[in-house]
Design a protein around this nucleic acid. Structure first.
Lengths: 339, 339
DNA sequence: GACGTGGAATGAATGGTTTCAACCCGATCG
DNA sequence: CGATCGGGTTGAAACCATTCATTCCACGTC
């Protein structure tokens, strides 16, 4: 292994002190133009690259923020990551994207990795519902921002989308299209999102004078395509099939669409489908899916910006906040009323 | 900002020297059981977390490897990332996943971020075809492994899949199903993959005694769903439409499927479709897509392992190698011969 | 009782950068 | 002419964990 060229080598070669080289890099305005040019050219000539670890050691914090998502296979989180990444880059930071796969233990492993790295902060959608992960972060006072989750007891920021409104948007749309019995393909019951989306749907039904019996819940184990297929088979086995399905996310909806289509049931004529998240593949399905759009990239960006504010030079004026964004219904072929 | 508890605090509290604390953490067998327990409990009590930057500063390299992919929105790369991540974690490293979005300039930005971080190494699918990015890495002697690309002139490892064989698999399958004119929806022409897949297809056609005129190339700007839709419209506008389409990747194929279906053309009866990559959404389409499966996770894992070998304790015995994996055809509904 | 042995613990040196008080020197002011 | 100012530069401290040569100690052996 060849020795790395350090700031000292540059200083010697340029005939200045290390302090001056540092200034050339970090506060060029303090250095005379002549010296600056000379140092710059030596830097280029020697191929000097500053060592982030040394800089970090002094600064006490790194220039990396962590993003810990539940499922990298879900395009929704990919969009979140994109948003966060672009905000971070504007501030000259890197993002370390990691995938907990919904496992609290992997989540804990990553969090300890992050604390060792002294990351600037963590953006996360916790997989652990007990809050133990957050305690870990608090203990090390690593700033964090919750993504796609409200910070209930609030000692951190959060960015989320109002899922009750989202559910209601879907509900009103289906009711307006004449549906009177709707299936809800939910996900793991401990997820707040899943509950809120149902609540919104129930609210919309109530507005139309329909009781909770109009909503038939079909639980799904996970929020992925396979779980959607599975739930759809159960749906098809029912004696009295609802005329519409609302899915807790688009992956489920894609699974449903596949099974329903294979069974020869026409969408939307015999069955309307509404998904949630509006991932790219929802629009790209053979029958484009109506979906409740979450501003995923926007969420990622906001989360990153909140973190930057909390850890930036103006940290003192930072007050934790809970940003709640609004979802939007995107109507496509899978739920269009048939004329 | 509260001061971080350092190794010195632990040492003082436990009544030992800093060297001993370090030994407890890194070489516990050198320390007597009694001392070890005492130190461990102080560590827990104080919530001490070692500073990776300080450790790194001495070690000269970090415990993070970078993965730079072309498109995080493509599930293929997500699988690559998963494979790399799992191999890295087994070795106690973290992976920093970044997205160049095929832009050489973003790629360069990330590479300079990586060199500053002194990452252990970089796994990448270069967006820059001139090789300038690799030069940057070589210059700083940062080890790298090419993913999904062969290392032609070889001064690094690479892991790729034989795309010519992949194309041939698709070709033989379609020929066997009786197709005699096939459209090839390609991607950006400078991508080697795109060329190799076509070459394989031509080879399969030749084996069946068909000349290059049997393959009709329809160029696509990018390798995504929208480009697939676009190419499909052009396909449908043709006077003499081929009976089968081979797409350079699954995203294109999904776009094609959507447009073709909307035009009322039955798949596979009127048009067979074969994709490439075998992403989850290919199997999840309404008409499940036949696709050439690439062992994406396996590729990510191998790449990470090669990097670990190159930078690990046995680096001396490391010889660069070019691993070439084999693709596999997964036949599904979109190309089944109609009885 | 002198010496050797080996396990356990020590503490100083090391690494690269940033920061800041101190310094130098030419120019301006009184 | 001396004092002051300020732009430009310097040099050393600080950051924190690791490493390794050294010291310490208890025990056993001759």
């Amino acid at each position: 292994m060849v020795r790395m060229v350090g700031i000292k080598d540059v200083a010697r070669q340029a005939g200045v002190s290390v302090g001056t080289v540092s200034n050339v890099i970090n506060r060029p305005d303090l250095v005379s133009e002549e010296t600056r040019d000379r140092v710059q050219s030596v830097i280029k000539q020697l191929g000097y690259v500053r060592s982030e670890s040394a800089r970090q050691l002094r600064a006490g914090q790194s220039r990396i923020m962590a993003l810990l998502v539940l499922d990298m296979g879900n395009p929704f989180f990919v969009d979140v990551a994109r948003g966060a990444e672009s905000a971070a880059r504007e501030a000259g930071l890197g993002v370390m994207v990691c995938n907990s796969g919904q496992s609290p233990s992997e989540e804990a492993t990553y969090i300890s990795l992050f604390t060792e790295q002294r990351v600037r902060g963590v953006l996360l959608t916790p997989a652990d519902s007990t809050g133990a992960s957050l305690d870990l972060l608090r203990q090390q006072n690593v700033p964090f921002v919750l993504v796609d989750r409200g910070a209930g007891d609030a000692d951190g920021c959060s960015v989320s989308v109002d899922d009750t409104i989202g559910g209601a948007l879907a509900g009103r749309h289906l009711v307006a299209a004449g549906h009177r019995t709707i299936a809800y393909i939910s996900g793991p019951s401990h997820l707040q999102q899943v509950k809120d989306r149902r609540a919104g749907m129930l609210q919309a039904l109530a507005e139309a004078g329909l009781g909770p019996e109009a909503l038939l819940e079909i639980p799904a184990q996970r929020l992925d395509v396979a779980a959607g297929r599975d739930a759809a088979s159960r749906l098809l086995g029912l004696a009295q099939r609802p005329t519409a399905v609302f899915c807790a996310n688009d992956l489920l909806a894609l699974g449903v669409l596949q099974v329903v289509y294979a069974a020869g049931i026409a969408v939307p004529r015999d069955l309307a489908i509404v998904g949630y998240d509006d991932i790219e593949f929802a629009a790209a399905a053979v029958v484009p899916l109506t979906s409740v759009r979450q501003p995923a990239a926007e969420m990622g960006r906001m989360a990153a910006e909140l973190l930057l504010e909390e850890t930036g030079p103006r940290a003192a004026q930072h007050a934790h906040q809970r940003a709640v964004l609004l979802p939007e219904l995107v109507v496509r072929g899978s739920s269009l009323p048939v004329r």
